[in-house]
Design a binder for these strands. Structure first.
Length: 578
RNA sequence: CGGAGCGUAGCUCAGCUUGGUAGAGCACCAGCUUUGGGAGCUGGCUGUCGCAGGUUCAAAUCCUGUCGCUCCGACCA
């Protein structure tokens, strides 16, 4: 490709609406342009890089035995109603109407479609296992699109769905995808970490996210430096808080004391009260499927909503409004507690879920369910009726790893892939049953496996850049080699050599771009660095006088080679990396 | 959805407080010079000041509304 023929609108200055490095570089290197918030046009070079990632994904999915299909983006709402996600995923669903006013939804994912296919076509265990995948556009009504392609309303995803007859087979399918993902991201030049992920309301242990460590990531990963434990913070556990929960002798009954104006853990920790946060019980009230529940964590702990969702078996819950709370408990947030003696009437019947860190706690302080009053000398086992104990707290950095006993660390990361053993949730609801060897009807055991392809592209840039621009891994670079003649006059020695090297490299199957613009050398070098081609071959009159051209790896130093051997040298440099 | 900020040339931004002919740099076009890391000089082109309404003799500037974009938050009682 000739630079003057393609379209590479590079920007010297940073666009005002880009915040993170990869987003700036996507725009500056002329890879994408924004249409509007969360919607981007891929320009020729951006599309080439995207296609290379797609092809890597395709090759590895095929290698793992998955079958490529293409499913509709426009989907009937009925299948979403059948799966229950018409309600549970309502926030992300885009709706459309046809001229007859029939409603459609734009697919944010394709479990419903693929399961409908399986329901119709898979009847026998003899047809299993099967794994279908596609690389296609997804639509999600994101609450806040941001960071360019990182979180967009429309994005390209590879999604795969496995169907198995037995649990063991499903686990094998899962492992195949896990291994394929490891290969895919490695081939893309990305350093990723597979972490245990929240399985949400479906439950189970089989879910991993593939994370790219990055300060700009939207996820937090808890990990042990031994490498033996890594988990999304939504899922992560530890040996518990570093400061032990008090279990101290208490008087026969809790004591009510006045705390006028005190409505926060922090305020109660201040003089004159001086109740350390870890001596307090934080009482949170949620409305889950229109029923109130009390959730207790230690005062210095953060409730982990993902864990609560798992416990409740639904993600359909929200913090109760102050009026709702007052109506039920007779007090406002800040004065709430779960001490049985303070829960009158119907409130006494509300479920109380308590975090494990509170187990056996004695000598705690909590709200008295009377505005402006708290109770101290509270002993959990004596004074509260806990419906269920569960791990509900968010791990904090420094707590000890359950596997190794070493301190855990936390860092941010970008989620680029997710593998998930679904079980039979969708196959049961959408009737994807098969007959097993004994002639019994069984739901297919499913797995789903996603890769954010456009996000992966941006993650590569986020991870591979320097002050001058992108440093593409050769496997995903839009062009692998940039041939830069410093004099583009037709018939000049530089241009003649450039044309020859360009032609020969192209013939050898290398993706080459010839920077045939009549621009000053510095200008062309800056652009080549910005776009980030892995290798640049510069051809100028000075070097040619010695019969030489220059090969420069992006981010590396210049190596003079004779013009005659330039092509062979480039091929040799590329080969071990390919 | 809540909060904050920003919408002026293709891009980055100034001008707005204190109303009075629309600005700079870069980019673009022409010419000359230059030519190994985003050149110099000369000349030129470029605007619905987001949109709508209002106040005013007069609005980019003040007021109201609205749309868009960016960031933060959206359980932490």
């Amino acid at each position: 490709m000739r630079w003057t023929h393609t379209f590479v609108p590079t920007l010297k200055e940073t666009p005002a609406d880009a915040e993170i490095t990869s987003h700036k570089l996507l725009l500056r290197a002329g890879l994408v342009r924004k249409l509007t918030g969360g919607l981007y046009t891929f320009l020729p070079l951006g599309l080439r890089a995207l296609r290379k990632i797609e092809q890597i994904v395709r090759e590895e999915m095929d290698r793992a035995g998955a079958l490529e299909v293409a499913m509709p983006c426009l989907q009937p709402p009925e299948i979403w109603q059948q799966s229950g996600r018409y309600v549970s995923a309502a926030e992300v669903l885009y709706h459309a109407h046809d001229r007859a006013q029939k409603e459609w939804v734009l697919g944010p994912t394709h479990e419903e479609v693929i399961t409908s296919l399986a329901a119709a076509e898979i009847n026998s265990y003899r047809q299993l296992p099967k794994n279908f995948y596609q690389i296609t556009v997804k639509f999600r009504d994101e609450i806040r699109p941001r960071f360019g392609l990182m979180r967009a309303k429309e994005f390209i995803m590879k999604d795969a769905y496995s169907f198995d007859a037995t649990d063991e087979a499903a686990s094998a399918s899962y492992q195949k995808m896990y291994d394929a993902y490891t290969r895919i991201f490695a081939r893309c030049g990305l350093k990723t970490v597979a972490v245990e992920a929240d399985t949400g309301v479906i439950g189970g242990k089989f879910s991993h996210e593939f994370m790219v460590p990055a300060e700009t990531g939207e996820n937090e990963v808890v990990y042990c430096e031994s490498g033996r434990y890594a988990a999304n913070i939504e899922k992560a556990t530890s040996q518990g808080p570093l400061v032990p929960t008090p279990k101290i002798p208490v008087p026969a009954t809790p004591e009510k004391f006045a705390t006028p104006g005190v409505a926060t853990i922090d305020a109660l920790a201040q003089p004159p009260y001086g109740v350390a946060p870890h001596h307090q019980i934080k009482t949170l009230i949620f409305l889950a499927e229109s029923k109130l529940v009390l959730v207790l964590v230690r005062g210095d702990d953060q409730l982990n909503e993902a864990k609560l969702a798992g416990l409740l078996g639904t993600s359909q819950f929200r913090p109760a409004e102050p009026e709702e709370i007052f109506g039920a408990l007779g007090a406002h947030p800040g004065s709430l507690g779960a001490v049985a003696a303070t829960l009158a009437g119907p409130a006494a019947a509300l479920p109380v879920y308590a975090d494990e860190a509170l187990r056996g706690a004695a000598g705690m302080t909590t709200g008295a369910n009377e505005d402006g009053f708290h109770l101290r000398h509270v002993a959990i086992d004596r004074d509260l009726q806990v419906t269920k104990w569960a791990d509900l707290r968010t791990v904090q950095a420094g707590e000890l790893c359950t596997a190794t006993g070493q301190p855990l660390k936390i860092r941010r990361a970008i989620e680029v892939g997710h593998v998930f053993k679904l079980g039979t949730k969708y196959s049961e609801k959408l009737r994807a049953f098969f007959l097993d060897e004994q002639g019994r009807s069984q739901p297919c055991i499913m797995g789903c496996y996603g890769i954010g392809v456009t996000r992966t592209l941006q993650a590569v840039i986020e991870q591979c850049n320097d002050k001058d621009g992108i440093l593409w891994p050769p496997s995903v670079a839009p062009y692998t080699v940039c041939v830069t003649p410093l004099n583009v006059a037709a018939g000049s020695a530089a241009m003649n050599w450039a044309e020859r090297i360009y032609t020969e490299l192209t013939a050898a199957g290398v993706d080459v771009i010839l920077d045939d613009r009549d621009e000053r050398p510095g200008f062309k070098f800056k652009d080549a660095d910005l776009v980030g081609f892995p290798l640049r071959v510069s051809i100028g009159e000075k070097s040619l006088a010695k019969g030489e051209v220059e090969i420069k790896p992006r981010g590396g130093s210049v190596t003079p080679v004779t013009a005659e051997e330039a092509v062979a040298k480039v091929l040799a440099l590329l080969d071990p990396r390919k």
